[in-house]
Amino acid sequence: MGKPDFRVQNLHVSVEGKEILKGLNLHIRGGEIHAIMGPNGTGKSTLASSLMGHPHYEVTAGEVVLDGEDVLAMSTDERARAGLFLAMQYPAEVPGVSNANFIRQALNARRGEGNELPVLQFHRKLQEKMKALNIDASFAERYLNEGFSGGEKKRNEILQMSMLEPRIAILDEIDSGLDIDALKIVANGVNQLRSDNIGFLIITHYQRLLNYIVPDHVHVMMQGRIVRSGDAKLAEELEAKGYDWLKKELGIEDETVEVEA
């Protein structure tokens, strides 16, 4: 399989009849890291969730294509098996299901029937990845996210990502609630995965994370669409000057489209 190719074209998304995304375009190829920045309430998380097929979000127009396949026609699990991954801001807790069991089921679903990873090999791989992310060995047998701290949940998302080796990884505010040490670990996990076989979409509203994961492209989102794109320098500029200058330049008074949780 060649380099991943992920295209979002003119994406419109509504929640409970209210339009949040209003014609969003994005093109991510393997080896690239794209960052989406923007103030709260501009539709960043809606983008992440609707790309993954969260039932709460309704796509009213547009196209999403991964490696030539129509993503919007797929269910959430099909999207994941096609190589899409979303590191969630608020991952669910599932008592009674161990982390290891969950990841193994997910990995085997992705690899497909008849191509399952043997148990021992799986555990070796899991241990390696956990070590690389500075995760305690007991993590594997703990119940999925149950009683995890915010930082542990985020690290668990990155662990899953590195185990599943997606083609396109979307990280939704993976930096929120992390102290600087945890942030470095998470960033390190992302950097280790970086290759031509994976493209990243990193959603954040702080530039801080981008000191550790240097993006190739930075996009600013306001009013449910991308209003400005640039390189890593754009993120630095935003960190230094805030968003107001950009709003003024674009003639935007209220940049929001939604009330984010």
Binding site: H54, D77, F85, L86, A92, V94, P95, G96, L144, Q160
Partner: peptide, 30 residues
């Protein structure tokens, strides 16, 4: 069954029917 749990498991490639079984097992497991 909590739909956010089902969505989470599905978002990792696990088909819905298996996701539901896993969640219920998790809950009866102990």
């Amino acid at each position: 069954i909590d739909p956010t749990q089902v969505y989470y498991l599905m978002s990792r490639g696990i088909p819905k029917s298996i996701a539901v079984q896993m969640i219920i097992w998790g809950y009866l497991h102990d």
